[in-house]
C-alpha cells in the first residue's frame, strides 16, 4: 500500500553537478541513477546546465529527455529557469527582454513535460507571464533564498505580491537555505581566506541572522569600513 503525503521527495539533476561537469555522467546517466531509486521519481532539470540551446530547447533535446523519462520511469517536476538580469554588460535586462527570456524557458519546460517552472524573483514581469502559464498549464514557483524568508523580512513582499495576483499559476518555492540559522563555517572560512576581516565577517553574520536584506548588509558594512 502506498502512503500519500502532500510533499514528495524528488531529485534535482543539479546534484550530479560534479560527475556531469567531468563527463563521468551524461544526462542519460544522471536520469538512470534517479530511476534506480524506483519508478515515479520526480526530477528537476536546471535548464542552462543541460540544454545547449538555452533559453530555448531543440527538438533533439526534447526527444532525448522524453525518451529517458520513459525509459527510467521518471516524473518531470520542475524546470529550473533563470532571470539572468545582468547577462548584458553595463545594464540590466529590460522588462520586455526579461519577459521574453522567461517565456522561452516556459515553452522549453512545457515541451519537456514539466508542470512547474522555478523562477527567480522577477517582480516586474510576473503579471505578464501569467497568460502564457495559463495557456501551457504551468505553475511558476518563485524561489526564495536566504536571507529572505517567507514569514518575515525580505521575502514578505513576494508573499504579498503573490497573494495580490492570486493565480493558481503562481506560487513560492522555498529554498531549504531559508531554514538555515547561520552561515556554514566552510563559507565563512572561504571569505576570510579571500581577505575579509573578522570584524566585517562578524557583522555580516549578525545581520544575516537578523534577516537583513543584501543592500542593507552592504550599507552596514560600508559604514563599518568608513
Amino acid at each position: 500500500m502506498t502512503t500519500h503525503t502532500r510533499i514528495q521527495l524528488g531529485v534535482t539533476l543539479y546534484s550530479f553537478n560534479n560527475d556531469y561537469y567531468q563527463y563521468k555522467y551524461s544526462l542519460e546517466d544522471c536520469m538512470e541513477k534517479v530511476g534506480s531509486l524506483g519508478a515515479g521519481q520526480g526530477v528537476e532539470l536546471v535548464g542552462p546546465m543541460f540544454i545547449r540551446e538555452f533559453p530555448d530547447v531543440s527538438a533533439e533535446f526534447v526527444s532525448r529527455f522524453r525518451h529517458a523519462v520513459e525509459k527510467y520511469q521518471l516524473r518531470p517536476m520542475a524546470y529550473g529557469a533563470y532571470a539572468d538580469y545582468q547577462r548584458f554588460t553595463g545594464r540590466l535586462a529590460t522588462k520586455l527582454g526579461l519577459a521574453e527570456y522567461y517565456r522561452a524557458q516556459m515553452r522549453a519546460a512545457h515541451a519537456l513535460g514539466f508542470p512547474i517552472v522555478r523562477v527567480q524573483a522577477a517582480e516586474p514581469v510576473f503579471d505578464d507571464l501569467i497568460p502564457l502559464a495559463e495557456k501551457l498549464g504551468l505553475v511558476l514557483g518563485i524561489e526564495v533564498h536566504a536571507p529572505a524568508d517567507i514569514e518575515q523580512g525580505p521575502g514578505q513582499w513576494l508573499v504579498e505580491k503573490i497573494e495580490r495576483i492570486n493565480s493558481p499559476h503562481l506560487g513560492l518555492i522555498p529554498d531549504f537555505g531559508i531554514f538555515a540559522q547561520r552561515c556554514a563555517p566552510v563559507y565563512r572560512q572561504r571569505f576570510v581566506e579571500l581577505g575579509v576581516s573578522e570584524k566585517v565577517m562578524n557583522l555580516i553574520e549578525e545581520l544575516w541572522a537578523e534577516r537583513i536584506d543584501i543592500p542593507g548588509i552592504q550599507r552596514e558594512v560600508k559604514h563599518l569600513d568608513g
Binding site: A83, D84, Y85, Q86, R87, L92, Q120, A121, A122, P215
Partner: peptide, 10 residues
C-alpha cells in the same frame, strides 16, 4: 559576472 543580481549597484 554571475548575472543574478537585479540591482546594478551589486
Amino acid at each position: 559576472r554571475i548575472p543574478y543580481s537585479d540591482n546594478m549597484a551589486f
